[in-house]
């Protein structure tokens, strides 16, 4: 009994100390990691999705609240005027979450493009959704905001054969993104 108590006490102490130390370390590095992800992961994608913007997209990012959830919004400007926005949403792929960055032309209600930010799809099969060949298909598609959720995109995009689940994950993320887009547009109009 005494031996068991001893083991429990020692393990609990070790785990607690390690846990506290780690959460402290995490706190310390959180900001830097966020910056690194912005520079190395989101930055290049945002620059691709909002091609043609003249401002520094990463510097002009902001966090907005839509329907109680926080969204990291990137805004592209041309001649000092905002012309496009982009943000990430999640879809369920074959191997896990698919994070998709979708860009919108807010003047003409068009997609400016999509990029896959992170994924856990099978290399060489599902990972094909990250290739330009697939993502380029979404460029310039018009959005009908009044249509039903499935019909909001003016053109149907074919899934990649062999990567049906992964493609569906991308569609799901875009669907969620469109839902947010409508809310953002409403909010933007009401604040102006």
């Amino acid at each position: 009994m005494k031996e068991a108590a001893h083991m429990i006490v020692v393990l609990v102490i070790i785990c607690t100390v390690c846990g506290v130390a780690l959460s402290g370390f995490r706190e310390m590095t959180a900001e830097r990691i966020e910056n690194q992800v912005l520079m190395n992961v989101q930055g290049p994608r945002v620059n691709k999705v909002l091609e043609g913007s003249q401002n520094d997209l990463i510097a002009d990012r902001k966090v907005i609240k839509i329907d109680g959830q926080e969204v990291l919004l990137f805004m592209g400007k041309k001649d000092g005027k905002p012309w496009a926005i982009a943000y990430e949403t999640l879809g369920k792929g074959f191997g896990g979450d698919l994070k998709v960055m979708v860009g919108y032309d807010i003047e003409n209600d068009k997609l400016t493009g999509i990029q896959i930010v992170s994924h856990k799809e099978t290399p060489g099969v599902g990972s094909k959704v990250t290739e330009d060949q697939f993502t380029q298909r979404f460029k310039g598609i018009e959005i009908d905001l009044k249509a039903e959720p499935e019909k909001r995109l003016s053109k149907k995009i074919d899934a990649i054969s062999g990567a049906t689940y992964s493609s569906q994950g991308v569609y799901e993320a875009i669907g969620k993104s469109l839902q947010l887009y409508m809310a953002i547009k409403k909010q933007d109009l009401s604040t102006k």
Binding site: L11, C18, A21, I33
Partner: peptide, 22 residues
């Protein structure tokens, strides 16, 4: 106990490499 200790240091390395050597 060893695994807990080792794992803690590994997570530190992971966070540090993420923060400084992405």
């Amino acid at each position: 106990s060893y695994i807990v200790i080792i794992a803690s240091f590994v997570v530190m390395v992971e966070l540090a490499s993420q923060a400084f050597f992405y």
